[in-house]
Design a protein around this nucleic acid. Sequence first.
DNA 1: TATTTAAGTGTAAAATTTACATAATAAGTC
DNA 2: GACTTATTATGTAAATTTTACACTTAAATA
Lengths: 236, 236
Amino acid sequence: MIRYANESRFVQAVDCIVFGFDGETLKILLIQRGFEPEKGKWSLMGGFVKPNESLEQASTRILKQLTGLDGVYLEQMHTFGDPSRDPMERTISTAYFALIDIHKYEQQLNNDYHPEWFSVKRMPKLIFDQQEMVEMAQRSIRYKAALHPILFELLPKRFTLPQLQILYESVYNTTIDKRNFSKRVLATGLLIKQVEKDKSSSKRGAYYYHLNMQKYYANFQSFLNFIPNPTNLISQ
Amino acid sequence: MIRYANESRFVQAVDCIVFGFDGETLKILLIQRGFEPEKGKWSLMGGFVKPNESLEQASTRILKQLTGLDGVYLEQMHTFGDPSRDPMERTISTAYFALIDIHKYEQQLNNDYHPEWFSVKRMPKLIFDQQEMVEMAQRSIRYKAALHPILFELLPKRFTLPQLQILYESVYNTTIDKRNFSKRVLATGLLIKQVEKDKSSSKRGAYYYHLNMQKYYANFQSFLNFIPNPTNLISQ
DNA sequence: TATTTAAGTGTAAAATTTACATAATAAGTC
DNA sequence: GACTTATTATGTAAATTTTACACTTAAATA
């Protein structure tokens, strides 16, 4: 087989920034790296791209290994290619961010990885340029979630308005008036009220809602403006 | 030097989607590919990443080769890694889009490339997955320009409000009321009115404006909402 | 049945966005 | 030098959206 002559070839990696929400704060999933260099240090879940898989396939495979989950919301974010980012040898890494329902996540049975959830506010130091990847991922989801309803990916199938509001407030590190928030959210028509209530956090209980999946997919690319005055929130 | 054992290595490329504006429509710059496969076919300007350069450096170098320009607005867009995207051998390509002032662009003296501007509406077929890259790049600049003032990168240092409006109208394939457009644009405070007029397109002449560079850089990350009702414009 | 705690809801004011039409400029022409 | 012509420049009222703000309801428990 003819190949390009005189060109360099590099190891290609993917790294996944996996976000979850525990009802209070935004979290990311980290593992203790299983091989050198930096073996044992906290790092993102990543791996090398195999000869016959696409970048998407590689990240999906790796995410499945880490969380046991299929069908996860996964988005390519940025490719990091600084020549010296990996001290072992030049490695180009495409970073993906994933949003999962933290309660669907199942602890892996095998012992290769020891994943743990960390609050994005209190995270260990990460290897290589992964700190930068995580910061970019946080900016990315803030940016995207201000315009598109991606944060629902972090919630279980049924959720309450107070839960949703806490999620938005924690992602944007702000507080939102609950009357205005519920008007805004309900005006999208994305939510379907259920008859059951969640009584775990109050005596009165809060109504559960489901996503209207049809509208969710149809409107996903529209600008929704969930966040009041995004100008002040995004550009930090 | 120790390297990762048993991992595959791939050729890494960058491809640049270079946008320009001729006063009427949005254009992109294409070259006739100089080597096999697909030699002679129209393609994006691209090249291989060298051992000691970053992806940004590679794309800047290639852009300089193509346009003769430094300091061009350049943004990483997406990495394309389908195993069979390049029939010669597996190549992973990171696509960047660039916005340049078409009048600053200088025809290259050397004969390696024969670049030509094509309207995005009437473009030749491109090689590999470059058609997809161009479509994604168009979506990207529409998306970004609805919120950030990137389109000024396509204009010369001084420009008129009618020119600016034609640019926005052509990017979004729409018409905008000129009273509302000028209010919207001037309200950002980004423009500084000059005393001279451009008399090339009317007897009366239209005032030139400059960008307020300080505000431009300061507000670049803010959401500016240049486009009325973006919901209808983006999600095509 | 009284207390407690979180959920749920409405309205008026302010700000923003939209729709829409006419006057001004300056070159070229008669 | 008055008139024609093409394009630029500008203002306002109505509609819509966003914001600010406080009390009632539900249901468990004491």
